[in-house]
Design a protein around this nucleic acid. Structure first.
Lengths: 334, 334
DNA sequence: TTTATTTACGAATACGTTTAAGTGAATAGC
DNA sequence: GCTATTCACTTAAACGTATTCGTAAATAAA
């Protein structure tokens, strides 16, 4: 059993006090360069590693942030985490991952548990079936939090989103200008601004062209994934839309299967456009027109701002940062 | 500023000692049920949260595991993390994520830094350009580690892999039986058993059918992604294979682009098969035949075993667990 | 030269928990 | 009735670090 090397070890070896060692390791101005160098050299030689628990306990800094997301096996979120991790890495921070699986209760359990001082800050993308934001309101009072992509309106925290309204609006216009007369909508994130804005953009475009939608043309996301397929199929069968806008990626692929099942040709009989970060979008049959969110940049931005808050260099508690998505036109709408 | 509630708070309030509170919270047999109940009730009422740092410092248990992977924005790895997270959740463990981006030095930095007692155990899928495994050999002596999917041969630790040899063998046979005469191979993970086994399976199948491969038909993975496309294109142009086996997902899509660029029809002119967990594989143009690894299960299994080791209920330091992949035949090879 | 300030370090304490060892009272064994 | 054991709890000491306060020596200011 190896002896673990602590400040004590170094102190004893160098015949100086523990305090001096600790200060030297933290590059304190109180310590002479000469002594610091001796400490650093020995620390390196003995492979000294600062004990994080002890350090945290004393300093109340954990060098750790938490990321709470609905699902990791999702292109958007894994890219976002990628961005977050990149920023965290630069600052030698550690990243804890928590998946809610779109379950609000799990989400609450996570946020509660993170109040114990395990992390310095939290990045959250809200679960789709979270209706009540009381726990978030409490949370943001106690610990720095940045919301990204899936956000609530009335929370006192920084939010990073994309131009949901504009991109949905543009997508709808793209369809209308392509000759579509009846555009169905796959609605998700109903209770979040994110979802509301997308839907509003869709409605606005319809309105501008004197078109209407009926409730029958709107399919709501069901967390039971198999039902989504059925619901879309039922809607397409009865309503016979000539286009579909999907407000989340998860609903795009079911559309392809439905079209196949109903013998509808995409894009001739049915045009499809979806919010999506699928890297196979260009290779699908037919290739899929997407509203691509800058997922990686969202993650970076969110992390960046969280760190600014931790550094106390950010003073806009309600900042709303909006990044631009891009509409990438492909065969499914041509 | 709210007072943080500690064991001290509870002790004072209930007029009992700190030790009693601590033991009650840990459900120790030394404490009467009556007292425990009082402690639990008050803890709940005051929303007491055990301070993780203090607890770790004293008990040397962090309730945290680390996952080191090459890339999170990858179907296989995000599914694996999903499985890991599921198991961790059940045991109230926290999951730290580290991405190496296939960089061996970053990998070493991570493993070194995890020796400070920040985590109880580590799950690793080795970076593709890691040639030297000395740091792993040292690592496994000091902390429980389970390797998954991308593993080294001669490390004294548990390994979770898939039947790489068999699945590559079967995939190759599938192509041969489909009439292919010249099967190219996209080689990755050359320095890991994982990659070696896949290549060996390919070679064995060729051999059985009296076929040969030349070095010119083998393209090695380049970490500069843009080069892969060029390399594959060059190989296909000069060698004119009638099929390609890609040993990792990242090399499959470039094949599609190359075929498109060279005006080759898949599968007529060029059949393609790839190790892959793409959920859009059935929707590609044409749909892609895949060797699908049970990514989620691999993650679960790896985490499961790590916890067994932590519980000291696992006694097979060299256990090699092999899960089965499935060959899913689609249009790209028909 | 005398006083004030700076420099470089050490002693001691606190962070919040866990745990080994100890204690008095109640119960059991004979 | 006396000793041995069990029960329920307390005391006190860690775990390894960061930090406040203090201090002796060296330097600067007067």
């Amino acid at each position: 059993m190896k002896e673990t090397v602590t400040v004590k070890t170094l102190a004893k070896e160098l015949n100086i006090s523990i305090a001096t060692v600790s200060k030297a390791l933290n590059d304190s101005y109180e310590i002479s360069l000469e002594t610091k160098q001796k400490v650093w050299d020995l620390a390196k030689k003995l492979k000294y590693q600062r004990n994080p628990s002890a350090s945290n306990l004393r300093s109340h800094k954990t060098k750790t942030i938490a990321v709470i997301i609905p699902e990791i096996a999702n292109n958007f979120f894994s890219l976002a985490i990628n961005g977050i991790e990149e920023i965290a890495r630069k600052r030698d921070y550690h990243v804890l991952i928590y998946q809610t699986h779109e379950n609000s209760e799990i989400e609450i359990a996570f946020t509660d548990s993170l109040l114990s001082g395990r992390v310095d800050g939290i990045l959250i993308s809200v679960s789709s079936n979270t209706n009540n934001n009381d726990h978030f309101k409490e949370l943001v009072k106690k610990i720095p939090v940045v919301f990204f992509d899936r956000v609530f309106e009335d929370i006192d925290a920084v939010k990073i989103t994309t131009d949901d309204y504009d991109s949905a609006y543009n997508a709808t216009r793209h369809l209308i200008e392509g000759g579509c007369k009846k555009i169905a909508y796959l609605f998700a994130l109903n209770n979040l601004v994110t979802g509301k804005n997308r839907f509003a953009g869709y409605k606005k475009a319809l309105e501008e062209y004197g078109m209407v939608y009926t409730d029958a043309m709107v399919v709501n996301y069901d967390k039971d994934i198999s039902k989504n397929y059925e619901n879309i199929k039922a809607m397409v069968s009865s309503e016979k839309p000539d286009a579909i806008i999907s407000s989340i990626e998860d609903l795009a692929l079911p559309c392809y299967y439905v079209a196949r099942e109903l013998n509808l040709n995409i894009p001739r009989d049915l045009k499809i456009i979806s919010f999506s970060n699928l890297n196979t979008a260009p290779l699908l049959n037919p290739s899929l027109t997407t509203i691509e969110q800058p997922a990686f940049e969202i993650g970076k931005e969110a992390a960046d701002i969280l760190f600014k808050i931790l550094d106390k260099k950010y003073f806009e508690p309600n900042g709303n940062h909006i990044l631009k998505s891009s509409l990438i036109k492909r065969e499914s709408t041509s």
